[in-house]
Amino acid sequence: MTAILSWFALALLTTASAGVLLSRNWRWTLVLLAILYVGVFIFVRLYWPLGMAAVKLIAGWIASTILGMTRLGVEPISEPVQESLPQGIPFRLLMAALVGVTVTAAAPHLSGLIPGIGLAESAASLLLIGLGLLSLGITSQPLQTTIGLLVVLAGFEILYAVVESSVLVAGLLAVVNLGLALTGAYSLLAGENRQSA
């Protein structure tokens, strides 16, 4: 049953994280981010008690909500954006596929390195870290950068939940997630302040 749940969660995370990378509509991106945290919760629940695992889910959802509510009230900045890399869907798909191939190759090694971690968890964490880093590499916009960082951290949290079950760490990681969302929200509003000033 646990194995089925793990592979289901991996499928969910793959879909959601790829969607976060490919989507150009911020509403869809944030919905997919919230779904991504369900997958993270399923993985973390395998190693942590329900109460502690739920912290990840709730913190992730609150982070998505903070970003969504802030973005809702902000007009997009009309300044030309300097992007150094191609931004099209085909390029992103290709890069995501490359990350997928790398993860497929690296996940079994990670399973060997960390005692007790399953292949699905290894693959899920590496996939999130890879796609999050990819997202960070191709944008410099506050919202996308914040989402990219949240995705990277989500991947790390799956990995770290296997080796560390401290309440303090769970609490501080939740604070970091929420802090990132608030920083992202502030960054979005900072641009808006200038427009209305």
Binding site: P142, T145, G148, N193, R194
Partner: peptide, 23 residues
């Protein structure tokens, strides 16, 4: 972030790099 200014690339990169250190 300077008052009445949008978040620049420096701040975003600062947060990104420093956050990546933690994991």
């Amino acid at each position: 972030i300077a008052p009445r200014q949008p978040a620049g690339r420096g701040v975003i990169r600062f947060v990104t790099y420093q956050t990546l250190a933690m994991p």
